[in-house]
């Protein structure tokens, strides 16, 4: 007989027993030993029918294909750039993937990206050994103009973006700032200086309260108070 040992949306710790019996399927950070399911991370459980899923709450960014990330140029190679992603692994941007324009052999690569520049890039491939290939070809990708960079936990990024980008749209509308969020937890903000500070404040607030219910409403209230204008719902 199968039995579930925890409640939906419980916090679990490594080694905690989640379910017994073969009727349940582990997913996310859950694993099975014989007929029991355990968690291997600190996380939030989601029980959806037969699937027992553990969503991790913390950790470093582990690059995955198709993620859009923000990184800093830390080195220039023979045929590309090395990019720090605040992850255990650095990304490599090859000249082939850097620009639509043909780059001649031996050309000065600092004309495209200098050491210390921030770029927005997409992960094209991650090997088993975690070599990360990046590209800056595509809409919205490439060098980021001077702005403010802040860092948050990569596990809070979905909350900062909101459902289909709703949170991000609300902040952009209220503050008139341009905001780019990387999946690796780096956020670039550009606007008037006081508004930039406000955005940074709001994002820190989201990060701290990401899991308390009514987040959108609270953030909206906070933004309205700070900016003094009414935010309309929708679009």
């Amino acid at each position: 007989m199968s039995e579930i040992k925890i409640k939906n949306k419980d916090i679990v710790v490594p080694g905690e027993e989640l379910a017994e019996g073969m009727d349940f399927i582990p997913s996310g950070a859950a694993y099975r030993v014989k007929d029991k399911i355990f968690s291997n991370r600190v996380g939030l459980v989601q029980v959806d029918g037969r699937i027992v899923k553990v969503i991790p709450l913390n950790g470093k960014y582990n690059p995955e294909r198709n993620d859009v990330v923000i990184g800093k140029i830390v080195d220039i190679l023979m045929s590309g750039w090395r990019i720090d992603l605040i992850s255990p692994y650095e990304g490599v941007l090859n000249i082939r993937d850097a620009s639509d324009r043909f780059i001649k052999k031996g050309e000065d690569l600092t004309r495209f990206f200098q050491i210390g520049d921030w770029i927005m890039a997409k992960v094209t491939n991650v090997t088993t050994q975690k070599l990360v290939d990046l590209t800056t070809k595509g809409y919205g990708l490439g060098k980021l103009e001077p702005g403010r960079i802040i860092k948050v936990s990569p596990y809070k990024v979905p909350r900062i973006i909101g459902k289909k980008g709703s949170m991000m749209r609300m902040i952009t509308k209220a503050t008139d700032c341009k905001i780019n969020v990387g999946q690796n937890g780096i956020i670039w903000i550009s606007g008037s200086p006081d508004q930039e500070i406000l955005v940074a404040k709001v994002i820190k607030l989201i990060e701290e309260e990401a899991h308390i219910s009514g987040l959108t409403a609270r953030i909206k209230e906070f933004l309205e108070k700070e900016t003094g204008k009414k935010i309309e719902e929708g679009d």
Binding site: P14, N40, P56, L57, Y155
Partner: peptide, 11 residues
């Protein structure tokens, strides 16, 4: 280690 989000089978 658990706080850092390192995968671990148990404490």
């Amino acid at each position: 280690l658990a706080d850092a989000g390192i995968p671990m089978t148990e404490l």
